[in-house]
Amino acid sequence: MSILTEILAAALGTLRDVLPIAVVLLGFQLLVLRRNIPNLRRLAAGFAYVLVGLTLFLVGLQDALFPLGETMAEQLTSLRMGAGGPGIWLDYGWVYAFAAAIGFATTVAEPALIAVSLKAQDVSGGAISARGLRIAVAVGVAAGVALGAFRIVTGTPLPYYIIAGYAVVVLQTVYCKKEIVPLAFDSGGVTTSTVTVPIVTALGLGLASAIPGRSPLLDGFGLIAFASLFPIISVMGYAVAAERMGRAGPRGATKEEAP
């Protein structure tokens, strides 16, 4: 019975969330553009799908995605690697391993990333291999999320990491080929799919509340920021490295001859 009331409550909230879009689109269509609504039945069906879908997603969010991240954080922090006392960051090795594994696994097969890396292969004239780029980005995200977990464990300030990351991005933007830059920025969004975001958020908050001396509000957020910053760095880094190596090696010579 409780799941029914949960669904009903979520449905009401969803209606409030989706109504603004409907009002915006219909208002502009009827009042500003002064056109009729084409395919009214399809539109109504679409809205019904959106309402039901978002409602179910929100119920699943509370019942599955959040608890999944929290439980993993709780169980992993209770499993210390060393025998040392609290506050020794090396003790939390399994936490970093899990963070890296989640980062790598959710990135490497992401369709948006596959599209981006194929485009990069085209733009670079083959100097950048699509597969190499995909793995580079996935490793980058893995390192990013693990570093984010390390930051939560040690409680060091988030702005230092992010500012350092931005500085690297700005430097790379200067050195990188112009065509790669938009692709790199696009790839920043690929790791943050709708399923990944809640789990990673809950993981960070769970870590911050399980580790003594950390506050969820001050230390728990930031994993998503790491996960969207590191792909940018690794795409441009890989592009620059691939160009350099391509120019030095025999493959670079054949590229030179191509039109």
Binding site: Y49, L56, F57, G60, D63, A64, L65
Partner: peptide, 12 residues
């Protein structure tokens, strides 16, 4: 809950 997430997101 995960089934809800998959079905919900797909409908959405």
């Amino acid at each position: 809950g995960l089934v809800f997430v998959v079905v919900g997101l797909s409908l959405f």
